[in-house]
Write a protein that binds this DNA or RNA. Sequence first.
DNA 1: CTATTGACATAGCGCTCGCTATGTGGAGTA
DNA 2: TACTCCACATAGCGAGCGCTATGTCAATAG
Lengths: 204, 204
Amino acid sequence: MGPPLRLTRAAAKARTRELLLAAAAQVFAEHGYAGASVDEIAAQAGYTIGALYSHFSGKDELFLTLFDLHAAGHLRDIEEIIRQCTGDPDFAALGDYLATLADNDSCRWALESEFRRHAMTRPELMARLAERRAAGQTAIAGLMPGRRPGTAQCAEDDAALVITQLEGLILQRRLNPASVPPGLFAEALRRFFPPPTWAGAAAL
Amino acid sequence: MGPPLRLTRAAAKARTRELLLAAAAQVFAEHGYAGASVDEIAAQAGYTIGALYSHFSGKDELFLTLFDLHAAGHLRDIEEIIRQCTGDPDFAALGDYLATLADNDSCRWALESEFRRHAMTRPELMARLAERRAAGQTAIAGLMPGRRPGTAQCAEDDAALVITQLEGLILQRRLNPASVPPGLFAEALRRFFPPPTWAGAAAL
DNA sequence: CTATTGACATAGCGCTCGCTATGTGGAGTA
DNA sequence: TACTCCACATAGCGAGCGCTATGTCAATAG
C-alpha cells in the first residue's frame, strides 16, 4: 500500500513518545526533577498522564531516558566545532555558531545543570555521565594538534581544556549574553588553534 | 562581664540561623529546590520546622538568602587565585589548591548548578546573578595583564575566559576527578599568565 | 463487517508537602 | 525570686503529588 494519509499506529505512537520526551525536557528544565509533575509534562505534550504511563514506567524512567539521550549527544556539537577548527578555520563563523548554540534550546542548558546536580548525588548517574564525556573527550583529543612540543602537554589535556572552556562560556552566555559576545567564542578557539606556521616557528 | 560560659541569646540565635543555612545548602544541593523539604532541612540542622519559620518567612526566603550569599562570594576564591597569578606565581601550588577547592564543599557545586537552573527560568534571579558575576569579572579584569598587544583583546575578555575556564574545569572535576588532575588547573592558569619577559619578546 | 487489540482518558487513593496556630520552657531583667 | 518574652517544639490542615484501576474508542486483522 502507498503512504497512509493518516499516521499508522506505530508511527503515531513513536510521535507521541517524542512529544512526551520534548515536553519532559522542557518541564524538567524549568522546575527540576522533583518540581516537575507528570500531569504538567503530559499536558505540555498535549496528552494526559494515561498516555505518559503507557510509554514510560514512571517519572524516573522518563528522566533517565532524557539523561541518556542528553549524555550521548551533548559533546557531539562541540566535537563538530573542533573538527572545523582543523585545517583553515573561520573562527568568526564558528563563534557566531557557538553563540546561537548557546541562545537556542533554552531548556537544554537548564537541563544540563539539572543533570549535573543529579549526577553529583547519584554515583551510578555520575559514572554514566563521566563515561560518555570521556568518550567525547577522547574523540576530540584525536582532533587536537600536538602543539607546544616543548611542554609535556598531551592531546587529552588539550581536549579537556577546550571542552570545559567552551562549556563554561556557553553557561556564562546563558546568564549574561552581553558578557560573552560571539567574538569571545572565536578568541577562545583561536587560542587552542594558533596559526600553524607561525606557532611552529615561534615556539621555543 | 567576661565572655559568657553559655552562648548569649542573640549569639545562639545567630548560630541557629547559620546551622539552618548550612543544612539548607546541603539539602537543596542534594534534592533541588522543589525536592527539598523544610522538615528535612530543619532536622539536618538539629531543629524542627518551628525554628526554621522563626528565622525565615518560608522555603523561598531561605533559598533566596542562600542564593545571594552564594552569588556574592562565589567569584572571591577565583579572584584570589588570579591575584596570586600576578608577579611570580607558583602554578603547581595553585593547581593543587583549585583541585581541593573542587573536591571539598561537595554541596557547593551542586548548589551552583541548582542556582543556575533557577536563574535560567527566573529573570530577576538571572539579573542578580549576572550582576554579581559582572562585578567579580571586573575585579578580576583589573588583575589581568594587558598582554598580546597585537590583538584588540581587552582585560574584561581575558577575565571572562579565565573565569569560565576554571569553572568549567571545576565542574568537570566534580564529575570525573581523574580527567582533571591538579596539573591541568596549573596548565590552564599558565596559558593565561605566560612568563613576562619571554612573552613580551616573542609576541609579534 | 465483526472481533480484538492497545493507545490514551478518567477518577481516585495514599502520601507528603509547605505552612500556621498554638504550646512551652529557659534566658533575660529587676 | 518572680515576671516576661521569645526561640523553638508540636499538631494538624488543605493542597498537590505519583501512581493505578478502569473505561473508551479508533485502528487493525481476519
